[in-house]
Write a protein that binds this DNA or RNA. Sequence first.
DNA 1: GCCGTTTTCGGCCCGACTGTTTTCAGTCG
Length: 585
Amino acid sequence: MPIHNADIADVFNEIADLLEIQGGNPFRVRAYRRAARSIGEYPKNVRAMIAEGADLKAIPAIGDDLALKVREIVATGSCALLASLRAQLPSAVVALLRVPGLGPKRVRQLYEQLHVQSLEQLEQAAAEGRIHELHGFGPLTEAHILANLQGRLDKSRRFQFAQASQRAEPLLVWLAALPDVERVEAAGSLRRLRDTVGDIDILATAREPAEVTRRFVAYDDVSAVLAHGPTRASIVLRGGLQVDLRVVQPACFGAALTYFTGSKAHNVALRRLGQDRGLKVNEYGVFRGDVRIAGETEESVYESLGLPWIPPELREDSGEIEAARGAALPALVTRGDLRGDLHTHSLASDGHASLRAMALAACERGLSYLAVTDHSKRLAIAHGLDARRLAAQIDEIDQLNAQLAGVTLLKGIEVDILEDGRLDLPDAVLARLDLVVGAIHSHFDLPRERQTDRILRALDHPSMTILAHPFGRLIDSRNPSDIDLLRVIRKASKRGCFLELNAQPERLDLMDTACRMAKDHGVLVSINSDAHSVAQLDNLRYGVNQARRGWLEKADVLNARPLAQLRPLLARTMRSPACETSGSP
DNA sequence: GCCGTTTTCGGCCCGACTGTTTTCAGTCG
C-alpha cells in the first residue's frame, strides 16, 4: 500500500499518544505531534520526495531521527518504535483520550489499576463504581465520565461551519442584549472561518463579569454546564455544540481576542516571537516584565511583535507569520469580488427554480453572469439531461438572454465523469456550450492511480472547463477521494482548465490547503454555489470563507473576472486537441 | 526529539477551572 503523508502523520500521532500515556518526556511527545502536523500539511508527497532523493530535513520539525523514521514508515508501512509502544500498551487505549476529562495521566491510571483499555470497559468500570476509588478520582469525575460516554459526547466531534454559525448567532445576540455586557465577539475556529467547528468560543467585556457567566449558564438552550467560574464558563447546547465564554477587561480585549481566536499553533508561534523580543504574550496582553505594552486591540498585539494585523482566516502557523513579517500577506478575496457563479441547477434536472428565477436572483445578489449547469443523463436520479434536452435548453437560454437585462446566462452542463474518464454526453453537444463542468458522482473509492487517471483523462477532453468538487467529500458522511492533487493541478494548468471550490456547506471542496496549492501553480479556482434553489446562491459566502483560508486573492478566482475577461478563459480553442503536447494523460 | 543572528546543550507557551486535596495535579483551550 503506498504511504501518503497522512499515514505518516497518523503513525506519529499514535506514537505521541502512547508516549504521553506512558509518561514520556513531554517535549518528545510534542516533537512527534509537531512532526505529525507538519507532514500532514506538507504540500509535497513525502514518498515522492524520498524517490527524488530530496532532503526530508527540509520539512519543518523533522530532524535526523524523525527523517529516519519517515523513511522506515514509507518503506515498511509502520515503524519499530510504534510496534514496541503497542507491545507495552494496547493502542485501543488512545481512544480513552477522546473522552472529555480524561488526559494521559488518568488514562494510564485506569489502564494500570483497573485494566481498562476500551470505551466499553471504561463505561462498565464507571457504572460499577470502581473508578471513584482511584487516587485523584472522585464521585463527580466518575459521574462525568459516565455521562459523557452515555451522551456520546466526543471531544473530536465537529460541526459544519454553517450549522455552528446558525447556533452561535442567536446566542451572540442574546448575550449582547444582557444589561452588563459591553461587547461580544465570536472567536475560535468560527472566527477563523474553518469548514468545521469543534466548539464556539465567545469573548465579552462586561461591568460585572461574574453576573454574565451566571446568566450564560442559564441560557435556555443549555443542556449541560461543563464549567462555571467568575470569568469563564462552558456549556453544551442542545444538539451537542459546546460553547465557551470568557469575560475580560476592555484593556485586554485585543489580546484575549487574539488568544481565543487561535489557532493554538498560531498562538504558540506568537509567544515564541514574543520570547525572542523579551516579551510575554498571554490573553491579558503583551508584557515587558510587569508592564503591559499592548493588548487593547489586536493590532496593538501584532504591532508589539513587529507584525501587521493578520486576518483570522490565515492564523494556522502555516506561513502567515513569515508573510506578515515580509509585508507579503495576501489581499484576500471577498464576496463582493465575485462577478458570477459558474455552477447552478434549474428545474430541468434536480433544481427547484426556473432559469428566469435563478437569473433574476443572481442579479439581485450583484452577480452579472450565471452558468446553468444541470446534471447529465447518467445521473438519472437527478433527471439528468441527454443530448436532446440539453440542446433544447441551449435554445431556451439564447431566447432568455435576449430578454434579460443586467445578467447573462451561460450555457453549461455538470457532466458526469464516467468511471473510465470519458464524459457522459456526446462531444458535439458539449462543443455548443459556453463551459463544461465535469464531476464525479460514482465510484468515489477507486485506488489513487485510477481515480487520478480518470480525472486527468476528463481534463484532456477538449470541451472540459472546470473540475467540480474535486475530492467529492461530504463533511461527516463521505471521505475525500484519494487523488493525486498535484498531478491534477499540473494537468489543469497545461490544459487551461480550472478547479472548483464548491460552496455547499457540507462540501467546501476544494479544501483550504488545496486552494493554496492551486494558487501556487497558477490554476484559477472557481467559487461556485452549486445552487439547487434561489436561496442556495447565498452559499457563495461559505465558499469565499474557504477561499480566504486558502490564501486566494481576487486575481486567483476565475469568477471574480468580469464576463468580458471570463469568456476568453472559457473558450475551448485553448484546449483543442491540437494544443496538447504529447505524453500520457 | 527539534532547534539556534545569544546557544550544538539547554531550552521548549501560558493561565483558568475542576475536583480532589489540604496545597495542587490534571485537563483544557
